[in-house]
């Protein structure tokens, strides 16, 4: 579904991604692991074209999207949930969802507001509240629900477990598994190995913008030296 081929991304003159390649297949949940500053968020943004890779390809459903506007990438079927959540704080929950609404897409699970309220019951209670009056966990739920309103085929979740209470982290893991059951392809970036192992089928480890590991969690268990070298546990 998604094939990232040797991308180099920069912030100004700082070289963040150094020829990173990986693939994501339909229906799987992939975890992108690595330390702070390893390039996880930049990878997500580079797929989304919020950061334009200077070299390399991002092939989604057979088309290279490098150089396109972010909105075209979203229209093509990639949903992006940013690490900073970036909900519209002056808009109500319902209005936030409306911003994300896109027509139904062939080959992707379709979401309605009612279905999303089933998955995220808190949002239903707070449907008329403004974003700024919500807790961190609720904002995290809202930002995912908002992106799902676009009926994406592939969901990019940037650090979904960051900065929320442990109880909510558990809920979040259940939610991601529910999304997977609905047939959604998901890529999460994580620093929390336990969380990643609970939801993902496969792990990709990045460090200094390069891929250091790509394989199952069982493989990763078998090589504790990799874990020790690239992940802070």
């Amino acid at each position: 579904m998604l094939s990232v081929e040797g991308i180099h991304s920069y912030y100004g003159k700082a070289h963040i991604l150094d020829g990173l390649s990986f693939q994501v297949s339909r229906g799987e949940v992939v975890a992108l692991l690595g330390r702070n500053g390893a390039g996880k968020s930049t990878t997500m943004k580079s797929v989304m074209q919020l950061v334009r890779p200077r070299k390399g390809k991002v092939v989604f459903q057979g088309t290279d999207v490098v150089g396109q506007s972010a909105f075209r990438v979203a229209k093509a079927g990639i949903g992006y949930v940013p690490e900073e959540r970036r909900i519209f704080t002056d808009l109500t929950v319902m209005e936030n969802l409306e911003v994300g609404r896109q027509p139904k897409r062939e080959g992707a699970p379709e979401w309605t507001v009612e279905q999303l309220f089933e998955i995220f019951p808190n949002l239903k209670e707070r449907r008329s509240n403004r974003g700024k009056h919500m807790s961190g966990g609720e904002q995290q739920m809202l930002t995912i629900a908002r992106t799902l309103m676009g009926n994406p085929m592939l969901l990019l979740l940037d650090e979904p477990s960051e900065g929320i209470a442990p109880v909510i982290v558990e809920q979040m893991a259940e939610t991601i598994l529910k999304l997977k059951a609905e047939g959604l392809t998901v890529m999460i970036s994580e620093q929390n190995l336990h969380f990643a192992r609970a939801v993902a089928d496969r792990a990709i480890i990045v460090e200094s913008g390069e891929k250091k590991f790509d394989g199952s969690f069982a493989d990763l268990e078998a090589h504790p030296e990799i874990r020790d070298a690239y992940l802070s546990v």
């Binding site: 909105f71 940013p82 002056d90 911003v99």
Partner: peptide, 21 residues
């Protein structure tokens, strides 16, 4: 709604599939 959302964070509106141009 899109206008108000873009007032706050137009890049995010774009990332949600709205043609900002």
């Amino acid at each position: 709604i899109l206008v108000r959302a873009a007032t706050q964070d137009r890049e995010m509106v774009g990332a949600l599939g709205v043609n900002q141009a």
